[in-house]
Design a protein around this nucleic acid. Structure first.
Length: 103
DNA sequence: CATTTGACTGCGT
DNA sequence: AACGCAGCCAAAT
């Protein structure tokens, strides 16, 4: 039974609303909550992100969550999220212009 | 009640 | 294009 956690629950609700194949930036999620706590969104993900598609939330630069790029990459390939392969060093970025979620 | 800490962002160099 | 610095928000200690 979900209990009123305030901000955390709101963040989880928004992330759960992101459709597959799309992504949203931390700042966008925070903005939907009426706050600018982009860091806060990440904080909630670190705490309870295990219950939501956290990989659909990325940085404003199109980079996946810090320290979770490998795990997120698996999900992107599975969901068919448009990625933008980096030069050749194994790095990659998400094509925000193609899959940025807009409510 | 004050301090610390982040799965961040934007701007300047 | 890459790196560094300062600004912001809410929860935990």
């Amino acid at each position: 039974m979900p209990r009123a956690e305030g901000f955390a629950e709101a963040v989880l609700a928004v992330v759960a609303d992101i459709p597959p194949g799309c992504v949203a930036t931390y700042g966008d999620v925070a903005a939907l909550l009426g706050s600018r706590g982009a860091r806060m969104v990440g904080q909630v993900m670190a705490r309870s992100g295990a219950e939501v598609p956290w990989w659909r939330v990325v940085r404003a630069s199109g980079l996946p969550p810090a320290g979770h790029a490998e795990r997120a990459l698996i999900e992107y390939e599975r969901e068919g999220t448009p990625l933008r392969p980096s030069t050749d060093d194994g790095g990659y970025r998400i094509d925000l212009a193609a899959c940025r979620w807009r409510p």
